[in-house]
Write a protein that binds this DNA or RNA. Sequence first.
DNA 1: GTAAAATTTATGAACGTTCATTCTTTTTTT
DNA 2: AAAAAAAGAATGAACGTTCATAAATTTTAC
Lengths: 193, 193
Amino acid sequence: MAQLQKSIDKRTALLKATLSLMNNGGIQGASMAKVAKIANVSPATIYLFFESKQDLVNQLYLDVKTSFAQAAFKEYDPSQPVKVNFEQIWFNMAKFKLDQKEEASFLSQCDNTPMIDEVTRQQGLQHLTPLFDLWAQGIQQGIIKNMSPYLLYAFTIYPMDFLMNMNCKGLCHLDEKLQQKAFQAAWDSIKVG
Amino acid sequence: MAQLQKSIDKRTALLKATLSLMNNGGIQGASMAKVAKIANVSPATIYLFFESKQDLVNQLYLDVKTSFAQAAFKEYDPSQPVKVNFEQIWFNMAKFKLDQKEEASFLSQCDNTPMIDEVTRQQGLQHLTPLFDLWAQGIQQGIIKNMSPYLLYAFTIYPMDFLMNMNCKGLCHLDEKLQQKAFQAAWDSIKVG
DNA sequence: GTAAAATTTATGAACGTTCATTCTTTTTTT
DNA sequence: AAAAAAAGAATGAACGTTCATAAATTTTAC
């Protein structure tokens, strides 16, 4: 039992090391040797948990995406009106991206480069289906413009990645007030009327 | 004179090779050996034009960003109203991203990863100052919400990168009609009233 | 105008490193 | 003592870069 826990801890340490290294120097900055050293493990040990570097990165992507989705849909209450739910999810996502900067910036790095398998990327996307369902509901109720989820995502969620990146670089301070303005912009872009 | 042209051609071929390789496999996919082979040149020759791989990528970034800016501000007429100009610029950018897919996807890759020097990135950003000026004008006239350029960019320009990526993957067909919808969303997110 | 010399331009091979991965051995656990 | 887990050293391949030379071009000399 303690053995299992030690395994889990090692896997976690490896993922965390990869995350940190990739944020600083991209995928080329995360060599297996460095990952192993930071996780206090031999390079060979990585291969007890991951079958290749690609597999390591893919699994990290899925893990992070999963925890992002969990954060996004926290306190999500389907009985509430569409806009309330959307606002809840939007601010949940914003909070995640601000609190877990490394995770968020890793995801945005992955989503714009050909370093994740297309299959894995699709798997990650599926965690967001509740949001897509919510949008469909909003469209049906005539509250949200009749647009493809791609457009809705592009104009409400994706902009957060840019703001988060600017925030990380110290170019744009994402305080409460700015978040409110940003949400207003997001909502205005897709609301009807 | 013909010698100078040959030099320019070689430089161009090297940049083009790098662009193509990086789009397929990221920066790790663009090894100097492969770049040289595709440009029909010896690896050593690259170093007659670029002092390092980093320099090669930086110069490519600046070159592409420059031609993007040129496309963006084509037929830009400062005597026209703010919204007309903004619409012109927006569709110019959309056209560039659709016509020059490799260039566009390279830029979006660079803007989300730590592979370009921060200095170089700032240089690239400066090409967009006419747009920032236009926004300032719009805010002054009470047409555009009083927001930082970062927010305005995040909700009007940045979403295009996402749509372009989806379009490239065949997941979202960016025809005339969808472009119109997208522009409407962009404008709605920042317009006053 | 032409041939030799000088200079520029480009090369392919080779450099030392570092890479992802594997293999053999040692340590730890059962 | 047997089995499982982890280690470190070693693998060949690939990396970015350099270097001594070869090809191509320009300059010089007649």
